[in-house]
Design a binder for these strands. Sequence first.
DNA 1: GCCTTAGGATAGAGCTACTATCCAATGCGT
DNA 2: ACGCATTGGATAGTAGCTCTATCCTAAGGC
Lengths: 207, 207
Amino acid sequence: MQLKELSRQSGVSAASIKYYLREGLLPAGETVHATRAQYSARHVERLELIQALRRIVGLTIEQIGGLLRMADDGVPRLALLAAVQRVVLNLDSRATAGGGPGTPAADAVVRLRSWPDSPSDARNALNAHLELMESLNIPVSGELLDTYSKAMNDVAGLDIAATTAPESVDRLILTAAVGMHMHSQLLLKLLALAQASHAIRRYERDA
Amino acid sequence: MQLKELSRQSGVSAASIKYYLREGLLPAGETVHATRAQYSARHVERLELIQALRRIVGLTIEQIGGLLRMADDGVPRLALLAAVQRVVLNLDSRATAGGGPGTPAADAVVRLRSWPDSPSDARNALNAHLELMESLNIPVSGELLDTYSKAMNDVAGLDIAATTAPESVDRLILTAAVGMHMHSQLLLKLLALAQASHAIRRYERDA
DNA sequence: GCCTTAGGATAGAGCTACTATCCAATGCGT
DNA sequence: ACGCATTGGATAGTAGCTCTATCCTAAGGC
């Protein structure tokens, strides 16, 4: 199929497809002649992936490009999942310069939950975030971290258990990114409702 | 003090202050004469609040304006807190048209946790989100919701208990917004670490 | 042989949050 | 009294992002 047909099937405008080609999100079609290119079902799939990452997950073109380039370079799946996590869960605060000493609180959490103690984006992000909270004078008690981390441990156990390894790398990215986003948002919605409920009870009691 | 001094004390450029005045984020100073205005310590505080909401919490000018106008209109604190929650925790997906029938799953959660059963932004957002997940074919089991909501109930209990009512409304917004944002981000960082830990264990076992 | 399409380049549009410039009016220091 | 600095108001420009549109030449298909 050629550009116009690809546009029709994917629902993405021809101009946008050209833009994605320029930005390296979509591999070039097979050039038959200087002015004719063939696109395949893979291109349709790739476009659907791009749309989902843009519209549902809300990633930027640059972030999507990074993930897709990793996928095309054959990066191992675990590393790819870590990259997905980084962009979906915002682990790349500029403050996240890896390799710092680590906060005592984060170390305590990792020990308490007996999580594998290896440096990672998630670990660095946690350290950076705890330091940020400290610098803002927001207290983080051991009890709070304990409760939070226990809750997240329970949740993550279910999340990972529900994960089945998909066929293609593109689909791995799709399900991982969309799933992570939806689950984290679900968590925040439940948090909001729980907070509101507690707040109502408290205000009623005070009144 | 006049504009230049206000700019110096707050660290915000004079041009930006003018912009905030135009957008109604900052109340006009007391006009002494046609070309002279007096600003007070309240203006400095307000600017610090605006900066925190922009740079730390990442709200848009429009969202900040909405909150500040509510505060200036003397809206009750509980309603103000709900508004803060809405913008900080992203409860305003366009799909959140309140008053729908409600999903059975959400009803079940509310009953299970014995949360006050009143329609609210949080409740609507949860309903909309569950419907969205369903439309995307992402299964949400009762067990998952149970685990998630129990975790969030525990967490919210601590969050609310830690809240002390601040003096001024401006400070209420500041501590609520920054606190909510930092706590929700902390939760996501812990979720990331927990997921990564579970994933590593799983991949190791599979390998 | 003409119409359509590909690819490449470039420019514009719409959004957000500023930033800069220009202006007339006017107070303050000297 | 005079001029510099400052104010509010208006307007325009900038920068980053994601497209969208236009223009062009080359070339294949009917």
